[in-house]
Design a protein around this nucleic acid. Structure first.
Lengths: 366, 366
DNA sequence: GTCCCGGCTGTAAGCGGTTACATAGGCACT
DNA sequence: AGTGCCTATGTAACCGCTTACAGCCGGGAC
């Protein structure tokens, strides 16, 4: 009766399945069977094993298991950036959906250099079963073309379409932006400024396109000077707000490509010298995303409503479908053509745009 | 000469080190050596191997490597919740510090049930090299006492102290709160309301304690009805704001235990009927955390400044120290007593509290 | 010409699991 | 009693990688 490793039960690395087997007087195979509920095990044996497991506080070693089963129960999420409430909402959605399904989430954000992203992506092999890729920059996405071994199940979230052959989920940015401009126009505005997102960002570009199309469709004032630069940051929104006031004639409304910038703009207008501009009386303001705090702004922000957390959850669920189907490829080896989802945003009308119905606030499909 | 596995090179699971070895005409050991730069390899051999690696797009399998090296290059982060900008900031700080050090980050948030957390924690064995635990609830933390095998390097972030014997990082909540009350008192306020955080939350409790201590120290009006209920959510702040107005005499200032609630409160005051309350003229408002959007509120929010991202980064670096030292325990087997860090917040004065200096805004240590 | 040594490379033993296959009773049938 | 099958269990190969150890080779010292 060997006692060599018997004293290490409570040691550093936790016990191994072998220790359990020995203490229970069975083979590792049997232990594995009861742990995974695969194969038959006599009731009494099972009981004994479970008892030892409990005693030892044994937990199977993740990496070891991954090695044989070839699955990690972990999903990766590659984000461009993690600023602001948008991302906490997104992560929250992804995380809770993941846990519900028994998966872990590996996040990686703030990627700027192509090589850096490629490196991260590579390092993910053998660590995740699938990937949610959110990369609004076409350039960056392009750089990933050859990297994520086509083998890794992947879902694209808000990525420029057509670059990578994966399932994807996008928001109808164009439609949402048009709807907002129409709404503003319906309120009587003819000269509407637009604060752009980062150049090269797909969402930003689509929103700009929606703005332009609506302006044209409705015959509103089209003036390139109305299209202010921005980068989705609050600060940029604030600066845009300042520049807005130098325009003449001054626009009567401004539509920011996201809420962060709308908030920054709101701030700049209020702080304007010599005296602050009233919103919506002086200038109406609208944003995009409807992040949770939007309704608590002053005045409450009218915005294009995006179900952010739901978007994350959806992406995760789609990904899981792919992962699981990959598990048992029913002769359908050749991947079916990528599935593409486009989510409709809603119009969320609150005080900042000056609509009469804004007392409480209304929300409607676009 | 077996050819069994030779045709799978470009298959689904990427190539293995064996494939590389075979194609390069060397043994796996040599390949491993050049990949990890361990042991000597002739220049020409190295070149040949690297070439094959490149060709095959070979990337070592994470799980396999983890199994032998007993390290995963991944750190876990357990969060209580992922609402609002506080958490995106925190995650951002952690994530960027991690990447800088070559580590991945596994996040898991929104834990409510003790058993759920325990399960998650257990599942982490063999998946992470260490853990950042943020669990402001003493109850919950207590529930983890026996779970994370004492073996897993762990750092506590904003956790109630003294429950678990790990290194920890806390904010000086008490001091920050006192400083803010002193500031408010310095502005002439004698009747200051406080919006509490969730009961059972350590940070919230400390901030409340700071408020009370300062009230007593300065001989301000002490009235339990001034201590409004809250839960760190915007909504709760808004409701607290409404209740605030029913108090008589009405407080002249309100200090919320975090910015989200301060923002909600700001909103409620402005929307008050029959007519909105001016801030700071009618009531001064202050928050805690100084989340990035705070300064863009209307009026800009005075707050206790917390270097959120830095806090996350610091936690990660501390954790890494532990992890690495664990790697080579220089006879210092017995863990040294837990190291405890307490970060000082700053006072960030802006418009919402009515200080004269709030033109631009000032920031000072407390 | 031996011996020793150092540089380079291969062999094989794990790491901690899972699982195909073999083994061994037990029991119902023929 | 022999047969066959099902149940419960053990044996050992394997997942992909690292690494201790051993082997081989060439050159300088003696």
């Amino acid at each position: 009766m060997p006692t060599s490793t018997s004293a290490r039960s409570q040691g550093s690395g936790s016990a191994s399945i072998k220790a359990v087997a020995r203490l229970a007087g069975v083979s590792v195979a049997t232990v594995s069977r009861v742990l995974n509920d695969s194969g038959p095990v006599k009731g009494e044996t099972r009981r004994r094993i479970l008892e030892v497991v409990e005693d030892l506080g044994y937990v199977p070693h993740g990496a070891a298991r991954s090695l044989t089963t070839n699955q990690t129960d972990t999903l990766g999420v590659l984000l461009p950036d993690i600023h602001g409430e948008f991302f906490s909402e997104l992560i929250r959605g992804i995380d809770s959906a993941a846990r519900r399904q028994g998966y872990h989430v590996l996040v990686s954000g703030s990627h700027e250099e192509r090589e850096e992203v490629q490196a991260v992506l590579r390092a993910l092999r053998g660590r995740v079963d699938g990937l949610i890729l959110m990369t609004p920059s076409a350039d960056m996405l392009e750089a990933l073309r050859s990297v994520p071994p086509d083998s890794l199940p992947t879902v694209l979230l808000n990525c420029p379409p057509g670059v990578l052959p994966f399932d994807s989920i996008n928001l109808d940015n164009h439609g949402g932006a048009m709807a907002m401009v129409r709404h503003l126009a319906g309120l009587g505005h003819r000269r509407i400024a637009f604060i752009q997102g980062p150049p090269g960002n797909h969402d930003a570009r689509e929103r700009l396109r929606g703005y332009r199309d609506a302006v044209q469709e409705l015959g509103l004032e089209a003036d390139r000077r109305l299209e202010l630069r921005g980068d989705f940051g609050v600060e940029a929104g604030s600066r845009a707000g300042e520049r807005l006031l130098e325009l003449s004639p001054r626009p009567t409304a401004v539509f920011a490509a996201n809420d962060a910038m709308a908030i920054g703009c709101l701030h700049a207008l209020r702080e304007a010298r010599p005296e602050g501009i009233e919103v919506p009386e002086g200038i109406a303001v609208a944003g995009f995303d409807d992040i949770p705090i939007a309704r608590f702004m002053s005045p409450p922000l009218t915005s294009v409503g995006v179900p952010i957390a739901a978007l994350g959850a959806l992406a995760l669920e789609r990904l899981l479908e792919v992962v699981r189907q990959r598990g048992n490829p029913g002769k359908a080896g050749a991947a079916s053509p990528p599935h593409h989802d486009e989510l409709p945003p809603t119009l969320v009308v609150r005080g900042s745009c000056g609509a009469r119905s804004a007392q409480s606030h209304s929300r409607r499909k676009v």
